[in-house]
């Protein structure tokens, strides 16, 4: 798994869920924050007509954090919103996943199940939307 792949899974997972799954791994690497966690904004860009030129659409709150493990390994995390703990956790997981001894467990026991949970959540939302799929009949006027 790549760092951006893990980052996406961790950012889309609700923080309390991530917190409990991470605790279950029982990995206790000492870390300190070297940047943030700090909250700011990202300007979101849209495209005219969905595919055309970019325009500045509006902003979202976001939080970022960078941590260093005791051996100096750096980890980074970014997340939409203002949850500083969430950003720090993502950075911590990212840093730990740079450790040869931990990466396998993190990918197999944390990222993969969280991705499965996201897939399940998406599928359920999709099936809920699918239940409202409609086929309108066009009536011929005057009959």
């Amino acid at each position: 798994m790549t760092r951006p792949y893990r980052q996406r899974v961790l950012a889309l997972t609700p923080c309390h869920h991530l917190e409990s799954r991470w605790a279950a791994l029982d990995i206790h690497e000492q870390h300190r924050c070297v940047r943030g966690p700090e909250t700011g904004m990202a300007m979101v860009r849209g495209r005219m007509g969905g595919t055309g030129n970019a325009f500045n659409f509006g902003e979202i709150t976001m939080t970022r954090a960078s941590v260093a493990l005791d051996d100096g390994t750096l980890g980074h995390g970014w997340v939409r919103g203002r949850d500083r703990r969430h950003a720090e956790l993502i950075a911590l997981v990212d840093a730990c996943a740079q450790q040869a001894g931990l990466v396998r467990r993190i990918d197999d026991e944390l990222i993969a199940p969280l991705q499965d949970a996201l897939t399940t959540r998406e599928a359920q939302a999709s099936r809920t939307a699918a239940a409202t799929r409609v086929d309108f009949f066009t009536l011929v006027r005057g009959e």
């Binding site: 700090e38 904004m41 979101v44 849209g46």
Partner: peptide, 23 residues
């Protein structure tokens, strides 16, 4: 409140074609 926050990033243009559709 918005004026109190620094800008940390500019997003890639949204890909609304990949939207997870609700409607």
């Amino acid at each position: 409140y918005r004026t109190t926050l620094p800008r940390l990033a500019v997003s890639e243009p949204l890909d609304t074609g990949s939207m997870r559709i609700e409607r």
